[in-house]
């Protein structure tokens, strides 16, 4: 250990080697700990029910079987419907939310808008105080009558004050002269925002789009509160119901006309989890880079 290793002409001292060896070990172990649950659901979804009942869930399929997928997909319409609802909510919610938040964020940076601090505080205050769940629930479901309406899943999450402030922070870095000269050339405020500011703000727009898409995709709480009609269930809530009760899995089988005395419930729980999570895991390698960039962006701007 005491012997110094040379790399790139730089001397590695003993304390450095000790620290690095320790770091590599700790980080590797943590990474494995992060991956084990994923490995477990993947492996168990491909394991026969009998094997799970005898040996339990495992990290490697002891007895490979596609039975649970065959049964989970026996009634694909239910799953496709949940997918469709989730995609609609995510796409509409994200596009609408990014538009609303970025537009408001831009106005809050305008030096020639005298009420910008007042409005900023008006938005910011909602992060300090809230009415709580009960009035919110009564408002959306009874007063606005959005029960069993996908708008109940889109509208409440559309405005995110944090995203708005993130946009504001980024756009404050864009020189005001750009707005000024564009207006001098006769462009209206909205045109300035859309044509001149938005292209320059692409990094922050991508970031808030990603944040909000993730939030919409993974939401189950609003569905649980406001949706009782099975045809409007979103993916995560659909999965939650299947996980919470065997009865719900059986109901889907009955609808599909599959009649088997004992459902492979343990392996089906895992294959249904995979079916619901699949696209995110598949997309993850492509989007995580932008996500990390966005996080870095946010922390630098404070």
């Amino acid at each position: 250990m005491a012997k110094a290793k040379r790399s790139k002409g730089r001397e590695y001292s003993a304390d450095r080697i000790t620290f690095l060896a320790f770091s590599y070990t700790v980080i590797t172990l943590l990474t494995i700990a992060c991956l084990i649950p994923f490995l477990m659901i993947i492996s168990s979804s491909f394991t026969s029910e009998r094997s799970i009942l005898i040996y339990g869930y495992s990290l490697w399929p002891r007895d490979f079987s596609l039975e649970s997928y065959r049964l989970s997909l026996a009634n694909p319409n239910v799953i496709l419907r949940a997918y469709w609802n989730t995609i609609v909510v995510t796409v509409v919610g994200t596009v609408f939310g990014v538009f609303v938040n970025s537009m408001a964020g831009y106005v809050l940076t305008r030096k020639d808008f005298p009420w910008r601090n007042l409005f900023a505080y008006f938005f910011f205050f909602t992060t300090l105080f809230s009415g709580g769940l009960v009035p919110y629930f009564i408002l959306v479901s009874n007063t606005l009558g959005l029960r069993n309406n996908l708008l109940a899943l889109i509208l409440p999450g559309a405005v995110s004050v944090w995203n708005m402030l993130l946009v504001k922070g980024f756009m404050s870095g864009i020189p005001f002269e750009i707005t000024e000269s564009a207006k001098m050339d006769g462009a209206g405020d909205f045109t300035v925002y859309l044509r001149f500011i938005m292209p320059l703000a692409k990094p922050v727009i991508a970031t808030i789009a990603l944040f909000s898409a993730l939030a919409f995709w993974n939401d189950w709480f609003n569905t649980m509160l406001f949706i009782t009609d099975e045809r409007l269930f979103t993916l995560q809530y659909f999965l939650q119901r299947l996980l919470s009760s065997v009865r719900n899995i059986r109901a889907i089988m009955d609808e599909a006309g599959v009649d088997i005395p004992t459902l492979p419930v343990q392996s089906m729980k895992m294959s249904l989890t995979i079916i619901v999570t699949g696209p995110i895991i598949f997309l993850y390698p492509f989007i995580q880079r932008y996500f990390i960039q966005g996080l870095t962006l946010g922390s630098v701007k404070g």
């Binding site: 992060c34 994923f38 477990m40 869930y57 999965l239 996980l243 729980k269 995580q288």
Partner: peptide, 30 residues
């Protein structure tokens, strides 16, 4: 490692509960 450590942030809490069930349940938990 960064990519792997961030992965759990991307899944919903419903999926986390499914994983927890797989890990912790009395009869077949890992």
């Amino acid at each position: 490692t960064q990519t792997c450590l961030l992965l759990p942030h991307f899944i919903s809490w419903v999926v986390v509960s499914s994983m927890a069930y797989g890990l912790f349940n009395f009869e077949n938990g890992l």
